[in-house]
Structures are given as C-alpha cells and as structure tokens.
Design a binder for these strands. Structure first.
Lengths: 208, 208, 208, 208
DNA sequence: GATGAATGAGGGTTCATTCAT
DNA sequence: TATGAATGAACCCTCATTCAT
C-alpha cells in the first residue's frame, strides 16, 4: 500500500471506531444521563478499554455534546426530500411515518435527547439555533395552510410540538406500551399501526 | 406540653421534613436519574446535611422508589371526581385540563417519571399493576363510546397514550417551548392556551 | 413498697440489664473484635435501642474492658474448690473436665479472649496481673510434683499453656470439628469424649 | 528493553506488589477480622495509598478470601516431603517441629485463620474441602498405626486437632507467653524448646 | 497508537457518640 | 429513665482523567 493509502485506511478505521463509540455513548447517556453515565460503561458497550476510550475522546462532556450534535443532524435529515408545499396531508403522512419508524428503530436517540431537554438543555442550547429557525420556518408554512383554508386555525408552533410529542412518545415509553398491553418485554411495536393512529388523529384534528 | 403532644409535634415535624426531602429528591432524580443523582445534591436541595438526609432515608434507591410510589398515587388522584360515563367530551375536557395544569405546575414529577420509564422502568414495574388495571378499564369504556357511535373507531389504549404524550410533553420540554418561541427562560407557559389546543386536537381527532 | 425497696428493685433491674448487655457484647466482640463490633449490633443482640445501650455504658471500649474483666474472673472461679495438693491426676482430671465443659457451653467467652490476646492484649494487660501470679504459683506446685517424682520433668509454665491450648481449642474451632467430621452445623460436641481424650493425652504425656 | 521484556518486568512488579499487599492484609485481618479491618489500614501497612490498593484488589472481601486461600495452600505445603508411612515418631517429630517453627515465624497467618474459624468460617468453608479430605486420609493412617500397635487407641481425628491446638497456640498467644514468663515484649520465643516440649507430650501421650 | 499504572475527588453509607426533651 | 434527632469522622469503593512506557 502506498503511504497515502495507509493513511486513508487508518482514517477509515478511526472513523469506524468513533462511530462505535458514539453509538455506545448515546445508549449509555440515554440510560443514565450525563452525570449518571460512566466512561467505563461506555467503554464496555463499545467493547474497548476505558483507557482506549479516553484516548479517542477529549472528555465525557465533549463526547456528550458530540452525540447531541449528531442527533440534531439526524433529525434534520428526516426532512430531506419532503416538501411542505404539497399541502398538509401528504407531507404529514410522510413525515409522521418516518419519525415514528425512526423512533422505534433508534429509541436511544430520542431518549438521550429528551433527557437533555428535561434537564434544561444546558449543553444542547448552543446547537439549537438551526432547529429554531426550521421550526419558525415551518410555522410560516403552517400559517399559509391556515390562510389557504387547508387546515383549521391552530397554533402553528404548538402543532409541531404535538407531532413531536406523539411520535417520540413511543420511543421513550416502549416499556410502558408493552406493559399496559400485557405484551412480552421484547415484543416489537407495530410501527404501521401506530403511524396510522397518530396520522389519523393529527389529520382529522386539524381538518378545517 | 404533655408527652403525647410532644410526640404529635415530633411526628408533624418529621412528616414535614420527609415532604421536603421528597420534593428535593424528585427534583434531583428528574434532573439526573437514579444513578446520576447524588445524595449530597438532594440534601443541598432540601437544605440539610447529607448525614441528616441519611438519617431519614434508608437508602437512595429506597427514596427513589418512595418518590415513584408518590407520583403514581398523585396521578391516580387526578381521576377523582371525574366520570367517564358522562361521555367523551366533558370527561376529556376536564381530564386534559387537569393533567396539563398539573404538568406545568409540577414538571419535575413528569420528568422523573419519564426518566424511569425511558430507562426501562426497572423500579417502577412493581408499583405499576394498578395503573395497568386502570388503563385497561378505561379502554373498556372507550370501546363503549365507539360502539355507541360517540367517537370514531380508534385503538382505545393508544388513544390514552396520545393524551399522556400531549399533556406531559409540556412538562418535559418546557425549555424547548420557550426556546422555540424566543421566550425568556423563566416565562410561564400559558396553561389555558395549551389545554385548548390539545383538547381541540384530541376531540376533533376522534370525532365520528 | 418502701423507698428503699423501690431503690433495690431499680438496682436489680439495672443489674439484670447490664448482664444482658454483657452477654450481647461478649458475643459480638467474639465475632468481630473491638474494632469490628458495632454498638448497633450489640444493642440488637441485647434487644434494646442503640441510644439505650449508650445510656448504660460509657463507651464501646469501656464495655469491652468490662467484659474482659468479667471473663478473667469467671476463669479464676473455675479453680475454686480444686486442690492441687492432692497430686496431679485428680486435679488435672477435674480441672480439664471443667474447662472443656465450660468452653463448650460458653464458646464466645474463649473466642473473645483469644481475639484480644491475638491482637496483642492491649486492653487485657492491665487486668492480667492476678493471672500471672496464679500461673507462677501453679508453676511452683508443678515443680513440686516433678521434684516428688509424681510427673516427669516438664516446663511447668508450658504445661499450663498446653492444657489451655487443648481445652480452649474446642471452643474456638467448633465449626472446624464439625466440618472435618462431616457433622451437621448444629451438632453438639461430645464434651465427655473430648475431655477423656485430652485428659488421657496429658496424663500419659507427663507420666514419669 | 524489548516489548516482551517490558511486559515481563511489569508482571514481576505486579506480582511483588500483590505479595506485599497480601502480607499487609493478613496482618491487618489477623488483628481486626474482616469487619474490623480497614482498607486504609491495609494500604498503610503495604506502604501505598488506599486508592492504589483498590486498583489492585477487587474488594476487601475478595482480598480476604484470597489470603485465606493462600494460607490453606501454605499449610498443605508443610506436609510436603514428610512420609506418614515411616511410622508415628519420625513423622510427628518432623511435622510438629515444622509447624511450630512456621507458627512462630508467621504468627499472623495462624491468627487470621483462627479468627475466621472462630467467626464460623463463613468464607473459608468453600476452600476447605481439600483439608477435610487430607484430615480424613490422615485419620486412616493413624488407625493403621493403632491396629499395628504402634500407638495406643486414640480418636484419630481428635489427635490431629490436639496437634494443631498445641502448635498454633504459640502463634496466637505469643504475648501471653511473654507476659506470664515476665519476658520483654519483643523477646523471641525459643522454638526448639517449645517443639521439644510439645513433641514429648504428644509422643508419650500416645505411647501404647 | 495503545495500555497498565496511578490518583484526587467524590460516591453512598455506617459509625460511636452527644444533644434535647 | 428513656428516646428521637443530630453529627463529624470514617467506611468501602468508583470516578474521570493523566502519566509513563
């Protein structure tokens, strides 16, 4: 291998390990929060030694912030390819479906995020500006829908909260769902059924 | 003071202190989870020394479980005086209103609870049977509403989750609401407005 | 009851409680030593509260010393009524028998004492002078037996150690005896058999 | 140094430190028992910080058990090279001599062991099976000696207890021996004299 | 790049004892 | 006499992090 190929290989290895570490960190932070998570536990989840973990991160808090940044990015990506200008129904059907499937596939992501927000979002805040801009932009579009008579008058920001609340609830409360329905602990939730119920509630709830 | 009066006084003092401790514990557990909470921090919030705290509790975990038990009881009390037999609209208006006001008045309660559920509810589970019975009982009533044509056919358990998701969201995500709306950090949320929006969404969303 | 009768009654009660406390203390000190014993554990064994215990003792160390003093006295009493002047055989038969029976009836006594001696006897030493005088006195008598040809020449102090070693061993090592013999945990040891074996070994071992 | 040499060096250092820790632990456990011993005291005896100690052990109890395991092994080694088939006298002379010399050289070993047995041997028991087998095997040989008329009929297990009692007594009660003989605190005991007296007592005590 | 050693701070909890009534 | 409250010191152990190789 040429010297540059070696270097690329090393970089790839490093990237792979960093990804493993991030996954481990998100799972551990989701379970125990920043304070309650231990770097030992993260190292265990990643299958490496604590010393090695600390060689690759600069600090626990930094890893935490990095993970938050990653989550914010992933959620922004869920918007890609969707077009609010097609009107509320097709957009909401698609978006709610994606959000619920993602929530059920990666529940730790929503859990870590909600944990941070519950705590007052001290470390998330500096990363949150783009989200605010997007939220306020979406509110403009929703106001347009209302003005056009496509949906009834609703608070355009609260509507977005309601969609998030309903879609993320199933990631946060998986065990509650199973428990209340007398399902076994590992039973997968039915994403399609849930998406249908949530979409139905929202679409009818905002009908003019 | 007579001996029995002294004893009653002591008991009252003790009860008061225990209540202070519980409040402090819920706030701290809400912020950092069982693992991340420190008894030192709880003692600080309660305004007593760590040693004194440990004189009044048997262990951190025990205090945590006791707080959960308290929360489950409080939420069950929110049902008192409400009558599902009067039909969906009056019941839901009243229940959603209460729930949201309580969530905004005592956000740490919902936060601690959600934290426990996110973690897999390891310590909540033994206290959860009555909640399951209530949920399944409520599902029967909702099925009755559907059969009577009072609401459209919906999954009767998921409907309950949706109500919880919407009402508790504002307790968990207070800072997000303020941030997205460019409000100052301490601005109180408008419980009436939120209750109206949520109630409107739900009632129209389940209209036959 | 007259005033003095009341006072006597109170004194009797107190004496009884002090005895209960002493028994509890000996058992706990035997099990865990001065350092390892907790006043809580002693109070539990005595069936009283820790506060009450501390009302009746001045300190843990003081209670420990008091218990040692008691033990030294009890062992001195085992000599009462025995007469070394009758010659080695009748005396040793009687003394060894008593010592072994006492050891098996009150093993905690020997255990606490041995624990203190193992530690270097820091607190026993001030109480030990009478024992030394007795030991040296007995050595004189044994030297007389040797001079009279009643037993073979042996070190007169070491002989006493050997007797103590053999008789106390069964108090200290009760569980070992049971374990090595495959006996159940609660099986009582056969004091007569043991006394016979020990007496036989000693008497033949010192025969001229 | 080559990488493997470095590794060997590290391993050697580690082994050496572990040995230092074990010695310190045995001394401290001998003095105060499992409960009464503090890891701080063990660290002090070993000349390291408490944190460093905890880096090398998994827990105080684990260190205790490891020390017990070590002791059981050491005592089993005292048998090596001795042959019971040569008859009682040469074997007992050699074994008693070794045992007493070892007891006087390493009194903490016998003290820690006796402390554990006094307490009921809760942690020793799982390590004790080989000792029981050895004891019962030795009993068979002793029965052979009796059958061959080499010694008088004695209880073959109790005889072993008597040997242990006499040999270990001097380790447990060193201070008592010095005190009763008016020796200074640091005076070494005369192992040869003690071995002679004990051996003489035993051999004559079991003569046919 | 990788790893064993090391550490000061802090974790929850128990301790013997004193105080107040 | 008796008891609940209170406390500062100490308990075992884990923490995130740095050092040395």
């Amino acid at each position: 291998m040429s010297r540059s190929a070696v270097r690329a290989d090393l970089a790839a290895r490093r990237e792979e390990l960093m990804e493993t570490i991030r996954q481990a960190a998100i799972a551990e932070f989701a379970a125990n929060g920043l304070h309650g998570a231990s770097t030992q536990a993260i190292a265990d989840r990643a299958g490496i030694s604590k010393t090695k973990l600390h060689y690759y991160i600069s600090s626990k808090e930094d890893l935490y912030v990095e993970a938050l940044r990653h989550i914010v990015g992933v959620w922004a990506d869920l918007f890609h390819g969707l077009d609010m200008s097609e009107g509320p129904e097709p957009f909401l059907r698609a978006y709610i479906g994606r959000k619920i499937r993602h929530a059920l596939d990666h529940p730790e992501v929503a859990r870590m995020f909600t944990g941070e927000v519950m705590r007052g979002a001290p470390l998330l805040r500096p990363l949150w500006d783009a989200s605010r801009a997007a939220t306020q932009g979406a509110a403009r579009v929703i106001e347009g829908w209302i003005a056009a008579g496509l949906i009834r008058p609703v608070d355009p920001v609260l509507l977005q909260f309601h969609i998030w609340a309903l879609t993320q609830h199933y990631a946060l409360h998986q065990v509650e769902v199973r428990f209340m329905l007398d399902w076994p602990d590992a039973a997968p939730l039915d994403a399609e059924h849930i998406a249908d119920e949530v979409t139905g509630l929202i679409l009818r709830g905002i009908r003019p």
